[in-house]
């Protein structure tokens, strides 16, 4: 038996919005510790990994580990039927888990919607993500990162990210011209969520597809801050932390011939 009741149901709605364009089908791996999902996009360029810890639910019950194979587009359609303030409960019977039950309670508890989502068998590759000491870790406002990606998409399909000392620089070059945005590290004690924090072991310069980065920024509503982790010749990690877990996107770099 699996049961997970999320008081902040709106979070699940936002979470689905942040993965559904990257991944079509995925397994939700449920265990005592929580709900996890790991999936690559069709072209194997990006990987998304998310975790919702069991402590974030009230209550959370999962007798033994099992996987719920879900078409994310279908789940997203059903979640659109939940109000932003609804409490969302997910239920599945592990013996015959061919469907996932969802119930949506409004805050007054006088309207309850109940839905069933058919599950599917998904044979998914699982990758082991190595523990990495990144050369550069940047914490910055998530809205700023979203704006930079959106703005530079006007110029090019790819962006070079250079991190050195106290500056992160995003550069795009395309047929119409070029553009770059430099952010200096700042510290705002009053508003830490508005500051740019750069932790640097050594300088990094890497190129990435803006199309994928734009997709990752669908996670912006989940957190005021985004964490970017870079190392030479390694995938970029873009992370949005939530109270109850995280969503991490990994993007393979573009490398010169």
């Amino acid at each position: 038996m699996f049961e997970a009741r999320l008081i902040q149901g709106g979070l699940l709605k936002k979470l689905l919005e942040s993965v559904k364009e990257l991944v079509t089908d995925a397994n939700f791996d449920c265990s005592e510790s929580g709900i996890a999902l790991q999936a690559m996009d069709n072209s194997h360029v990006a990987l998304v990994s998310l975790l919702l810890r069991s402590e974030g639910f009230d209550p959370y019950r999962c007798d033994r580990g099992f996987s719920l194979g879900v078409n994310l587009n279908s789940l997203n359609k059903i979640l659109k039927c939940a109000g932003n303030d609804d409490i969302i409960t997910l239920r599945a019977d592990d013996n015959s888990a061919d469907s996932l039950s969802l119930s949506f309670e409004n805050p007054n508890n006088d309207r309850i919607g109940e839905y069933e989502l058919k599950l599917m068998d998904i044979d998914q590759e699982h990758l082991s993500i190595p523990e990495t000491d990144y050369d550069a870790t940047i914490i910055m406002p998530s809205a700023e990162f979203q704006r930079i990606c959106r703005d530079l998409t006007v110029v090019s399909e790819s962006v070079t990210i250079d991190v050195s000392k106290d500056t992160i620089k995003f550069t795009a070059e395309g047929e119409l011209g070029s553009g770059n945005i430099k952010l200096k590290s700042t510290s705002s004690i009053d508003k830490p969520e508005e500051s740019v924090n750069i932790e640097l072991g050594q300088d990094v310069s890497l190129q990435f597809s803006l199309k994928y980065l734009m997709n990752f920024t669908k996670g912006t509503p989940l957190s005021e801050q985004v964490i970017l982790c870079l190392s030479e010749k390694m995938p970029l990690l873009v992370e949005y932390k939530m109270d109850i877990g995280y969503i991490r996107y990994y993007l393979a770099p573009k490398i010169g011939d």
Binding site: M40, S43, H44, V45, A46, L47, E125, H126, L127, S128, I129, P130, S158, Q207, S209, M234, P235, Y250, L251, A252, P253, K254, I255, G256, D257
Partner: peptide, 14 residues
């Protein structure tokens, strides 16, 4: 010229 690498070049299968 740039080549897009694949994520499975970096992360091994389990």
């Amino acid at each position: 010229n740039l080549t897009q690498t694949s994520i499975d070049n970096f992360f091994g299968r389990t």
